[in-house]
């Protein structure tokens, strides 16, 4: 993944960048499978590697395939990245070992979910019962986020063809103004 990351930064051809970022998410998805998080891996592969790549390609078709090269090199962004990375790594030092049963996250509500979900919810997949039942509010929020995001896209660039054509016929400039 680190190799792909470096290649992403170095590459100037945006088509290659999109392909590589798809590869990056696919690698992340297989990493989740290794960590036994199948549900997350599933989502990552479908959304990250599939849909996001298609949407990025669509965007490329609308804009341009080459990155604008700036020759100016500034130190501030580099410093910011290094400091943020160092803080993140410092933060992981305190984390319990992966899969440690004594970790705080496994002590809070997780045991109750694991022990009671079979009786209370009766759905074999605990991930589903937590997602949809115990954490129903959160999932509702997520769906609302998706709805709002799509509504935002529609509001920004989603004017229907009919209104665009009508506007195009009204303005003297024709097509150019309608966009």
């Amino acid at each position: 993944m680190a190799v792909i990351g470096v290649a992403l930064v170095r590459l100037r051809d945006l088509f290659g960048v999109v392909m590589l970022s798809g590869l990056f998410t696919l690698t992340a998805a297989s990493l989740y499978v290794v960590m036994d998080a199948v549900d997350v891996a599933f989502t990552e592969a479908a959304v990250g590697a599939g849909i996001a790549t298609v949407l990025m390609l669509e965007t490329l078709a609308l804009t341009t395939g080459r990155e604008k090269v700036t020759r100016r090199r500034s130190l501030a962004p580099f410093l910011m990245v290094v400091v943020t990375g160092a803080v993140l790594i410092y933060g992981t030092l305190d984390m319990p070992r992966y899969g440690d049963p004594g970790a705080p996250i496994h002590q809070h509500v997780a045991p109750r979910y694991i022990e009671e979900s079979g009786r209370e919810v009766g759905v074999p997949n605990i991930v589903t019962s937590v997602l949809a039942s115990y954490r129903g509010y959160d999932t509702l929020g997520e769906v609302t986020v998706i709805f709002t995001a799509t509504a935002g896209v529609l509001a920004l660039i989603g004017r229907s063809r009919r209104t665009r054509r009508r506007k195009g016929s009204q303005t003297t400039g024709g097509d150019q103004d309608a966009r």
Binding site: A132, S133, I157
Partner: peptide, 29 residues
């Protein structure tokens, strides 16, 4: 619980699929 989960998952599925198709249409249009 089973009924509720099935229904809300259906709702999630409908919204997500529609969102994908809508965004794609908008970009492709």
């Amino acid at each position: 619980q089973h009924l509720g989960i099935t229904l809300i998952e259906l709702g999630v599925g409908i919204t997500v699929a529609a969102a994908m198709i809508t965004v794609f249409y908008v970009f492709a249009g």
